[in-house]
Design a protein around this nucleic acid. Structure first.
Length: 323
DNA sequence: AACGCGACCTGCGAGC
DNA sequence: TGCTCGCAGGTCGCGT
């Protein structure tokens, strides 16, 4: 279940393998994985073949590869001008997507959906494979457009003030240096909704999924249904800082396993197994309460048709309607 | 604007 | 044992 930290691990790994290489062949094994490419799999493949990968960019859980449509000019001794990309290969991992670098000798994964062959490079695998069991994720081509605020489109090796059109509706994420807390707080207060719903709204702040939302709320000792228009600045800051900390921790944990040849999304497990304080802990003790010598049992509620895990003691519901 | 819900998928575990 | 059912997750789009 890749959330922002896992996608960032993929981005960092991927960029070292694919930057500067040309896509020489495209094989769409399962067209459902390119269904968001409106013009169909043939158009998808045809437009990718011959394109050169300039970078790997991430905002929230969206990942895209800006492309140049011509091979790298290699003028002897000349300073090659960096092309301005207009198109990008977009990847969203959904629930179960993986981007794997593989040698051609490695047999196909059971859930291999798309295979990209890359121009040869010394000591590097020839293929970039999109593997996805549940097909919530996918690949498609999208245009690059100027960002609304003129800042970088996302985290990148060479940041440009361009963003994939299909990701332009989402806000910056908490790990983005250009994220504005003031703007976040202003828009949060203007809403009339519950805090968790707001945290999951990618248009307000991106990259937070169900798991990290619960972790951040637990850490900030705030309830998921807390009305956003009653949040004090310090509380909003607390929950955002908490989200940032949880993501940073997960990023550090995910980073430990990505010096292998795989650009792997599956590194989530180690972190999730050991470090979760709220998510999935129904019926278990609240770790913070236990450490303080209190007894409290984590509970699970349905909220937004999802499970939400809270401690009834340190993330209390309102009393007499007052928070 | 807010919000619920269905659609998109597969694998897994529970219950019969 | 084999079946069905519900559930998990992120995103999009539609209806209210």
């Amino acid at each position: 279940m890749p959330e922002l930290p896992e996608v960032e691990v993929v981005r960092r790994g991927l960029v070292s393998w694919v930057r500067g290489r040309t896509i020489t062949a495209v094989e769409v094994v399962d067209p459902r994985s390119v269904r968001r490419h409106a013009l169909g799999p043939e158009d998808f493949a045809g437009n990718l073949e011959g394109a050169r990968v300039l970078d790997v960019v991430r905002r929230g859980k969206f990942l895209w590869l800006p492309l140049a449509d011509t091979p790298a000019a290699d003028p002897a001794g000349g300073a090659a001008e960096a092309p301005t990309p207009a198109v990008a290969l977009m990847a969203h991992l959904g629930m179960s997507g993986q981007l794997l670098m593989q040698d051609s000798s490695v047999s196909d994964e059971k859930h291999l959906k798309v295979r990209l062959r890359l121009s040869p490079a010394e000591g590097m695998p020839e293929q970039l494979r999109f593997v996805d069991q549940r097909i919530f994720g996918g690949l498609f081509l999208t245009s690059l457009i100027p960002t609304a605020d003129g800042g970088p489109g996302g985290l990148a090796e060479t940041p440009l003030p361009l963003i994939a059109a299909e990701a332009s509706h989402i806000a910056r994420d908490p790990l983005d240096p250009y994220f504005s807390f003031e703007e976040f707080y202003r828009r949060l207060r203007a809403r009339k909704t519950g805090l968790k719903r707001a945290l999951l709204d990618q248009g307000l702040v991106s990259g937070i999924g169900n798991i990290y939302a619960d972790e951040a709320l637990w850490k900030a000792r705030l309830h998921f249904a807390r009305p956003t228009d009653t949040l004090r600045r310090a509380e909003a800051g607390r929950v955002l800082d908490a989200a940032r900390e949880v993501m940073t921790d997960a990023l550090a944990a995910g980073g430990t396993s990505f010096d292998s040849l795989y650009v792997n999304v599956n590194g989530a497990s180690g972190y999730f197994d050991r470090s979760l304080n709220a998510y999935g802990r129904e019926g278990k003790e609240c770790k913070r309460c236990a450490a303080a010598g209190l007894v409290s049992t984590m509970r699970r509620d349905q909220f937004m048709n999802r499970s939400s895990y809270t401690c009834p003691v340190c993330q209390p519901t309102p009393r007499n309607g007052r928070w």
